[in-house]
């Protein structure tokens, strides 16, 4: 049984100019211990589809799907109260914009401990010890001191790591990481990716990694989904994707890597999307 199983997910937003379909029939599944990477165009519905899974979209969004189950339970039929019990505990998410996702009015210690209190029922001493342990795991120096810092006193990458600490606090079964390392330098990025992979091995966690960093995909993913304009363009195991990408869009993405610059300008996807594919490939 898949840990997360989604069939034909559609998300529409009401906007002033009529309904806007941000996710158009996406199907995906993740198993325990699996790392699924989702890459794709900006605005192609990656974050929105995962927020739909978490039940965190605003009221202007309409979510429909043929099936959406987590750990065998139907997310579509679940009451908001039931969902609150699993979101942040069994299923948690590292949000794309860390600085905007932390509450500016509370210390980061409070924000980490709040999750532990609500979901794990730990007492004060346990919570503090666990919070310090988590900050250490994500590589924040002087964690005891840092518990008393407010988000604006932290750097961008430090805020992002606090978000990661909150997301992994309860050892989730499924972790959705939405661009989890964008604010991190490569040395700390490596430390964080190693941490996520070790949690996955230790607790059998399933991991959905949304990223535009092909290096991160290459170094972590088992399977990859490529999304474009609200749709799934391609799905493949990580090796096949890099070795023999099938869709034009994937090929375009891979060639837009800065190391592939020709002359003094980079190739962009629009330069390549309309070129005929080499034989045997379809977009």
């Amino acid at each position: 049984m898949a840990l997360l199983d989604i069939h034909n997910l559609v998300v529409e937003f009401q906007t002033a100019s009529g309904p806007f379909r941000a996710v158009d029939g996406v199907s995906l599944h993740v198993e325990e211990r699996e790392v699924l990477a989702i890459v794709g165009e900006s605005g192609s519905g990656k974050s929105v589809s995962m927020l739909a899974v978490m039940g965190l979209l605003p009221w202007t969004a309409t979510v429909t799907a043929d099936r959406m189950t987590f750990n065998g339970r139907d997310l579509l039929k679940m009451s908001p109260a039931e969902r609150r019990k699993i979101v942040g505990k069994d299923m948690s998410m590292i949000f794309q914009e860390p600085m905007a996702s932390l509450n500016p009015c509370f210390t980061i210690g409070f924000q980490i401990e709040e999750v532990l209190r609500f979901h794990m029922g730990m007492d004060k001493a346990q919570r503090r010890a666990r919070a310090i342990e988590l900050l250490k795991q994500v590589g924040i120096p002087e964690p005891e001191d840092r518990l008393n810092s407010f988000p604006h006193q932290m750097s961008g990458g430090q805020c992002q790591r606090v978000m990661i600490a909150i997301a992994i606090a309860c050892n989730p079964k499924l972790l959705i990481a939405d661009e989890p390392t964008t604010a991190l330098d490569v040395t700390i990025q490596k430390q964080i990716l190693d941490l996520l992979v070790s949690l996955q091995a230790k607790y059998g966690m399933g991991l959905i990694m949304i990223t535009h960093n092909m290096g991160v995909v290459a170094e972590t993913a088992d399977r990859v989904i490529v999304q474009y304009k609200g749709r799934k363009m391609e799905e493949a195991d990580v090796l096949s994707l890099f070795e023999s990408p099938k869709s034009n869009y994937t090929r375009a993405l891979l060639s837009a890597l800065p190391e592939n610059a020709v002359g003094d300008r980079l190739p962009t996807v629009s330069d390549m999307m309309f070129e005929p594919a080499p034989s045997g490939a379809g977009a």
Partner: peptide, 12 residues
């Protein structure tokens, strides 16, 4: 925070 294609566009 940009996908590779938009990143290329912005850098260009």
């Amino acid at each position: 925070a940009l996908d590779l294609s938009v990143q290329a566009q912005v850098l260009n």
